[in-house]
Amino acid sequence: MKSGSNLEKVLTAGHFAFTGELGPPRGANVEEVRKKAAYLKGKVDAVNITDNQTAMVRMSSWAASLLLIQEGLEPNFQMVCRDRNRLAMQADILGAYAHGIRNMLCLSGDHQQFGDHPQSMGVFDIDSMQLISMVKKMRDEKTFLSGAELDEAPNMFIGAAANPFAEPFEWRVHRLAKKINAGVDFIQTQCIYNMEKFREWIRRANDMGLTEKVYILAGVTPMKSVGMARYMKSKVPGMDVPDEVIKRLQGAGKGKVAAEGIKMACEQIEEFKEMKGVAGVHLMAIEWEHKVPEIAEQANVLPRPQVD
């Protein structure tokens, strides 16, 4: 075991993993975190805690992760390269580990221009690839990025994101291979709507032997409305939403679109369970945490395995 996190145990035992996501509040509202966490408890193996997502200031991801631990859930601490330099990053990794955080997700971060402080300086001292190798180095070589020894290693289960859809498509699997070489243990993909393209991506990853070296969790976000699907298609960079998805939601009829969105997500999850190279699902039900129990139920992923 690299970290002994619940997520790592579930994956190494060969179970189909199921992770969730929680966005910290735009304020110091502890109750909101606890309320969202309550919906997720027992329904997922770990919960991603986003780090100033979409470049909007929120409660820090490590602090919200600690609240999650208090509530008896396992956080997956997200860290973006946009907001801190390598000193602050390493300090936060050590601090997070010291407080019981065992999973982390290494991300570049959305550009600051999208958020509520577009005047800020984007740090990007290191990039997500370099962050992965830095955490690995701290864990496995017990040294800081500088090479200096550290007093007790942060044994993190190291995650990263992958976008299976963005052009150039041919480069996608090579980029995954690079992350594996950098030292990633698990991958959570961008939200998947274009199943055909995803199947092709995972086939290539299988052919290159990559899925044997890393656990891949397929990203799923149920569509709440036709408007959301349209927005995702046209406004969210890197998102691939085929027209059929929008058509199917439109066909659901008044008042039934959200249910249809959940049904579509569950169908995807069923397919992922059987798909070679997919080790689990990462459910991003953004601001829809209260629906997670229902989705988990309908997707037949309950009860969650207990691995010692």
Binding site: C81, R82, L107, S108, G109, D110, H111, Q113, F114, G122, F124, D127, S128, M129, Q130, A161, A162, N163, A166, E167, W171, R175, K178, Q190, P237, G238
Partner: peptide, 20 residues
């Protein structure tokens, strides 16, 4: 690169355009 990445592209790359 808007993020000055040495190991790009990032996940926001958008059919040849930058996410920004």
């Amino acid at each position: 690169c808007a993020k000055g990445l040495y190991n790009g592209p990032c996940g926001g790359t958008n059919n040849g355009s930058c996410e920004i």
